Structure formats: structure tokens, C-alpha cells
Amino acid sequence: MLTCPKVYIILVNYKNWQDTAECLESLFKLDYQNFKVIVVDNDSQNGSFAQLRSWAAGDSPVLFNEQFYAATPVASYPISKPVPYLHFDSESINGAALADEKLLLVESRKNLGFAGGNNVGCRLALAHQADYVWLLNNDTVVEKESLTHLVAHFEKSKYNRQRLGILGAKLLYYHNPNFVQAILGKYKPLTASTTHIGLNRPASTPFHDLRIEADDYVVGASMFVSADFVKEVGFMCEEYFLYFEEIDWVKRGAAKNYTIGVCLEANIYHKEGASIGGSIKDNNNKSELSDFYSIRNRLIITKKFYPRFLYPVYLSLVAVAANRVRRKQFDRIPLILKALKSSKKSTL
């Protein structure tokens, strides 16, 4: 086992520098030392990237939520500034030389989506001998021991000759931290929908009865991935743009005999949906962007991995359309038709 593997933590920022900076504040309090953080800004066009540089310089402070920090063991004091960083353009990171700076800020000239933004970070990490990459949503806050627990769990699995590929963490609600948001996800192929395992259970739940099944997956808010997995399975599929990429990655890994797991000692607090205007679960507050990709990608992933369920998935979209009408979201009906058309053009 490696005594102190090199970890690259990857955050994708989109128009939400305050959440990203708060996440960074918690990451730079980790008790694990051998890591770097890559922040990929997905062409925010609202000054987010400049604000992140200003935060690193000590000129743009984070607004800490006093209620959250009083209820959790996460320390609310700001880290010392300035934070040394390197600045890259996503088009010119190939061959980029890294020094001792722990923070790498990468500016993308276009919005690459969830997978594309993370893949930029993964390529940079693997080019610099990463042992692991930790794909972490920017609207999260981590406990200081979380990375130590993730590394230890993965290294133990290697020692036991298990082909663990992706490791999840215990996701807790940022705004209600005594309750679980998810420990894993469960995909339901009949309707191409998902549920969260552990949803709304008390944070202290031991989950002794947990059994990971074939259609379970690691929730994309926190995916701790071995470099070997990425090299053998490949990067995340970018055609989805938003939603279902993690399920695709897990299914492709399973085809190469990789398994998934969850480290229940690693506590991650997640705000959920802050960057895209509502989560995939929050149908009443979904942005049009969120709604489009959640409908489109149901069909894409079904065609790719569950083709025998394609007909019932099409039928389930009738219920989706009916729900939009019931909520008087009449403008979403053309969006559903657009999503159907887009899914048929998919090359996956």
C-alpha cells in the first residue's frame, strides 16, 4: 500500500464563486497533506473566475453560514491568505509545469458541462502522476478527516486485491446536516429515474444492512476515483453534458470488472443544485437547462445500457409532460419535444 498517495481534488465552478470558495476553505483545512486542488471555471461569464483569484489573494472573503458551522465539526475560521496558485487556460494545459502551489485555477473558454469540466481536471491530474482524483461538487463543504478516510478505505481495498474503481462518501444536507442526502444512488431502468440510498436517514445511521446492487452508483457530488480506473475505463462521457454521467461511468467500469463502494466515515455536506437552478429531484424548481438534460439523458442512457426498457421509458415521459401541464409549466412542453429530438441525434 502507498503510505501517502497523491490526490488531485477537482471542482468545477459555474457562476458560483462563493460556494466554490467556501468549499476551498474547507479543503485547505484537511488533515491529509499530499493533495492539490484544481478548479475549472466553466466559462462563467459573470466574473466568478476573477472573484476566485481575488479570494485567493485575500480580497474577497467567504460569507460563512453561522448556523451550519455551529451544527457541524467543520471549522468556520478563514484560512490564511494569500493562497499561492497557478493560473492556466484549458486550451493550453497540455505540458503545463506544476510547482509547489496547491491550488490550480483553470479557465475554460466555453461551458464544457459537468463531465467536460471534470475531464479537464482529470487530464491535468493524470499528466502529473496522480494516484487518485476526487471529483467534488463545488457546492460542498468537507470535514477535515474526510480525505484521510477515503484514501485509507481505497488503499485497504487494494491490499485486499479488490478492483474498487469509484468510492462514494456520506453526503449530508448542508442546510440540515443531521440528515443524510445520499450514501449511494440507485438507478431504476424501467423509468430511467434515480433515487438516493439513505435519503433523509439520520446522519448517525450505521447502514449495517447496506448491499450494493448492480444498478447502484456513486452520486456525482463526491466521487473518489483511482487513476488506474480512469486509465483503463476512460474519462467521463461528455455527451450527456449534465446528469447521468456518473451512472455511465459506473456501468462502463463494471464492464471491466470494477466495483463501487462508499466510505461512511467521510462526511460531505452538500447544498445540491446551486449551480444549475434546482436539483434533478426538485421538479418544481428545475431550471430549463436542468429539465432539458434530465429528460434527454434518460433516453440516451437507456439506449446505451438498457435498450429493452426504451419503450416504457418513452411512456414515462407522458407522465412527465402531464406533470408539467398540472404545474402550468406549458412552456416546458416544447422543451420536452426538443429533448426527445436531441436524444435521437445522440451518437452514444
Rank of each mutant, 00 (worst) to 15 (best):
H128A: 02
T20W: 12
L242D: 07
V318T: 06
R109G: 10
Y293H: 14
Y314W: 10
S287G: 08
Q51K: 15
P334N: 13
T194N: 15
L2N: 10
H153S: 04
P84L: 08
L136N: 08
Y132A: 00
N323C: 12
L337N: 10
Y306I: 01
A99Y: 05
D248F: 06
V218P: 07
Y243A: 14
L289I: 14
P189G: 10
A96I: 01
G253K: 04
A182Q: 07
K338M: 13
K286N: 13
V318P: 05
S290L: 15
L147W: 03
N119I: 01
V7G: 03
P177G: 05
Y293V: 08
P202W: 03
V12H: 09
K304M: 07
G277N: 10
Y243F: 15
K328Y: 11
H196Q: 15
L112D: 07
G253N: 05
L98G: 01
A57M: 13
S108Y: 08
S346M: 06
G277M: 12
A255L: 07
N118Y: 12
T195P: 05
G198E: 00
L164A: 11
P312H: 02
I9R: 06
A255G: 05
A322P: 01
N323Y: 11
Q181C: 10
N200F: 13
R296Y: 10
D131Q: 10
A255C: 00
K81I: 08
V180W: 10
T72Y: 07
R324Y: 14
G234V: 01
C263W: 05
